[in-house]
Computed example of a mutant assay.
Amino acid sequence: MPIGMITRRTLLQAAACTTISAAAGPTWATATYPSRPVTWVLPYAAGGATGRLAQPICERLSQRLGQPFTMENRPGAGSNTGTESVVHAAPDGYTILATSTANAINVSFDPSLPFDAAHDLIHVAVLARMPLLLMVSTELPVKTLLEFIAYAKANPGKLSVGSAGLGTVQHLSAELFSVMAGLEWTNVHYRGSGPALVDLSSGHIHAMFDNVASSLELLRSGKGRALAVTTRGPCAVTPELPPIWTALPGYNTSGFYGTAVPRGTPQEIVDLLNRETNLAIADPAIRKQFDAIGAIPVPCNARDSAGVFGAEIVRWRQLIALARVRKDG
C-alpha cells in the first residue's frame, strides 16, 4: 500500500491494537505516576486524629510507589483553607486532601464557600470512622450517662460545654444531644480540641464531645471522665462505655476520614491511589495503629467513596436542621 493511503481495514486494525494495548497494561498516567514527591494536605493543625490516621498510610504509599508521600498541615477556617488549596491544585495526583466530617458539614453549614467539596473534588478512598466520647470534668458530680442527663436537666443553662469550634463534629454532636435530651447549656467554642481538653481537665468547662484519638490521653491520665460513646455500638478502645443510643434512641454520630484529589485527576491515578490505600488499611500493622485510637477502617472503591461522602452530607444537613444551628451562631 502506498505511503499516505489509509484504508478502513487499517483504521480498524489500529483501533483493535489500541484497545488490546489499553487492556494489557497501564496507561501512560499510571505507568509514570508518581515520578516525584506527592503532597498529602491535612487542613488542620498538627497532632490531631487526621494526622494519626494519615501518617501510616503515607508511609506505606511511599514504600509501595517509590516516591515520598509527605503530610503538610494547612489549617484555617475550619478546614476550608487547606481544602480550597487542593480544589485549585493541578489535577495530576500530586496533591491529595485528607478529608473529614468537616468537609461534609461545611457544604450545608457554610453556604458562602467558594467551592463545593462534593463536586470540585474526586473522593478517592475512605480511611475510617471514629466515635466521639462524651467527656466531663472530674469535678462534675456525675459518673454515668443518665446521671449527667439528670444533672443537666436540674441545672438548666448552668453547664458549659466545649467544642473544637463552631460547626465542627464535636459541636454538632453536642447540639444533637441537647436537642434530643431537652437540655439547655452554654456552648464554648475553641480553636481545636486541644485547648478545650485543657480547660476540661482544669474544670473551666464542664463537658465536651471529642473524638477518641484526642480524648484518650486525658481519659487515661484521670484528668477527665468519659461517660458514653456517640456511635450506636460500643467502641473497641472503651468497651465499658455505653452508647448514647441506649439513653437517647436514634442518637448516632461519628467522625469520617478519607482522601480526595482535584476534579479532573485521571481515573487511572484515582483507582491506583484507592487500591494502594485499601491495601495499606488491610495491613495488620496499620490496623493495629487504627485500633489503638478507636478508628474503624472502612475500605471501599473510589465510586463507593464518593457515595459515602454524599451520604455524609445528607446526614449532617439533617442534623444541622434538627439542631437549628447556623454559622453565625
Rank of each mutant, 00 (worst) to 15 (best):
S202R: 07
S214A: 13
G224F: 03
H204Q: 15
T265Y: 02
A247Q: 10
K288Q: 14
S254K: 14
A285M: 07
R263L: 15
T246G: 09
L279T: 12
Y257C: 04
E268L: 02
E217K: 15
L216V: 06
G258V: 06
S214V: 11
Y251E: 07
M208H: 06
N274P: 06
I281F: 04
D304W: 03
F209L: 12
S202N: 13
G255T: 07
A302Q: 05
M208S: 08
G224W: 08
T253S: 14
E268H: 08
P243S: 13
C235G: 08
A260D: 15
E240H: 04
Q289F: 01
L219D: 12
A285I: 10
A302E: 00
A306F: 10
R287S: 05
P284V: 03
P262W: 03
G294M: 01
I269A: 08
D304T: 14
T265N: 10
R303D: 15
T277K: 06
S215T: 05
L248W: 12
A228P: 09
Q289V: 01
E217Y: 13
V237H: 07
P299S: 00
D291A: 13
L241W: 05
D283E: 09
T230R: 08
G307E: 03
T259L: 15
D210V: 15
I205W: 01
G222D: 15
L241S: 05
V308Q: 12
Y257P: 06
A292W: 00
A302K: 07
G222R: 07
L219F: 10
A306N: 10
L216E: 04
A213D: 09
A306C: 11
G203D: 01
E276D: 04
F256D: 02
V270Q: 09
N252D: 14
R220E: 04
